[in-house]
Nucleic acid binder design. Structure first.
Lengths: 203, 203
DNA sequence: GTCTATACTTGGATAGAC
DNA sequence: GTCTATCCAAGTATAGAC
């Protein structure tokens, strides 16, 4: 009995995960408009009604999907950044992570949900709460990277963090729109050059 | 007869304009999801079928709306920027224009349509074509503003233009998400300080 | 050019069998 | 916990009267 209860719980967890994965896939491929319960269920190979049983509403599911992808991704960023503490190394790491995000569509999920939050205002605070850790993370990294350098007192870390996250979002949007990422790649290359220059001014 | 034909044409033009205005309003208030033919028609006080008579499909209408708002706005930017050629003046102008965009929701229209272009790929090139003039405009302004200064040879104008437009989009998204614009205001204030500093290094 | 009426499709959500 | 069947609301689009 304990066994079957455990089994039941594990199956339930597995199903939840399958649903979340399918929702992420739908968001990345078809955007918010295409991430309907029917579309998600069909693509994931399960029944549509399961979404409502496990998540109540489609929007709840999409938030759970954002939660998961954002959390996982932030952890990956934190791990990666720990290895790179000089400014040039940091830029290289950022370039690599950015390419990963672009290829996997991680940021698309966020962009689509922010767009949808106009129609569904109740999503707004939920999404904002999931973006906040990113701004904080960016600020921590920036503080460390600029410490002792000339930019540290010129540019408040909070502003730099906000701008960084905004730039990330905007770049992904434009890159997706253009269908090629040459502009992004060129920008990162320039960023790496500037970082190298700034590093020569650091203590 | 000529008179009635003229009248007919003028009425038709007026109707088109009313529909476009209502579509812009819907996009700004409710986003792409809320900009349905029914919602647009109800809010604009006209019949739903008119949309299909004048624009064929809802998406065609939304593109026409983007066309109009983007064109008008770009003209306003060009006029405003002609008056300000030093870097600090330019930043002040940008701050003012940005506040206008934010309050009027001009960028929201673009963000929503970019988001929707995932679900409707045929929108992508259309939107891209309407964004391109902005990147070009940004590049022109940047070239003039940085001419002779130290940044001119450090940062390719193309990269700076792309980054500027991306930053604009991202800032609007995050500002809308947070529900307040203190972060943006702070960032612009920092931008003005940096611009003032850079101006002292210009010839 | 504009309106009414309507065909058709898709989507959210629930009831009830299994 | 999962599936089938179904209700209802909302959307796009068109035909045809005015």
């Amino acid at each position: 009995m304990a066994r079957s209860a455990r089994r039941g719980r594990r199956d339930s967890q597995e199903t939840r995960q399958r649903i979340i994965d399918a929702a992420l896939d739908a968001l990345k491929r078809e955007g918010f408009t295409g991430a309907s319960a029917r579309a998600i269920a069909e693509h994931g190979g399960f029944n549509q009604a399961l979404i409502f049983y496990h998540f109540g509403t489609v929007n709840h599911l999409l938030l759970a999907a954002l939660d998961e992808t954002s959390g996982r991704r932030l952890a990956a960023y934190q791990t990666a950044v720990e290895q790179a503490k000089t400014l040039p190394e940091l830029l290289q790491t950022a370039t690599r992570l950015y390419r990963e995000d672009l290829a996997a569509g991680h940021i698309t999920v966020l962009n689509e949900l922010i767009g949808a939050s106009l129609a569904y205002p109740e999503l707004r605070p939920e999404i904002a709460a999931r973006v906040q850790p990113w701004v904080r993370f960016a600020e921590d990294v920036i503080v460390q990277a600029l410490a002792g350098g000339p930019l540290a007192e010129l540019i408040p870390s909070r502003d730099a963090a906000f701008a960084t996250v905004a730039l990330y979002l905007g770049m992904q949007m434009l890159t997706h729109l253009n269908g090629d990422n040459t502009a992004t790649e060129s920008l990162f290359a320039t960023g790496e050059r500037v970082a190298a220059l700034l590093a020569t001014l650091q203590p």
